[in-house]
Amino acid sequence: MLEITPLHYSLLSAALFMIGVIGVLVRRNVIIIFMSIELILNAVNINLIALSDRLQDLAGQVFVVFVIAVAAAEAAVGLGIIIAFYRNKETVNIDEIQIMRW
């Protein structure tokens, strides 16, 4: 309990990952679903950083830099899609987004 091992960080990461997955599966607002995806990416980053510290290997931190770059790209494109969709359908409710053509 008092000694913090990489296992603790992995379990924290797994719990945060699960919170993100619940958000993706349960919420109906597309913006909140995107935020849940950011939570999932953060969970993965915690894991990589903790193991980088444990194994004294910088590759984990390099990977986190790439994950953050991809997350930024994903957020920009995804939010662009949301804006374009909202302009056409006046909604961001995922239950009303059923067709891929309009």
Partner: peptide, 26 residues
């Protein structure tokens, strides 16, 4: 946006699936 729910949507399966994912990850 949360007001309209697809009647075919079953929300608790999401939590259930997430629990399965957590068990798998652990």
């Amino acid at each position: 946006p949360e007001r309209y729910a697809d009647p075919r949507r079953i929300a608790w399966t999401g939590t259930l699936l997430a629990g399965a994912v957590l068990a798998e990850v652990i």
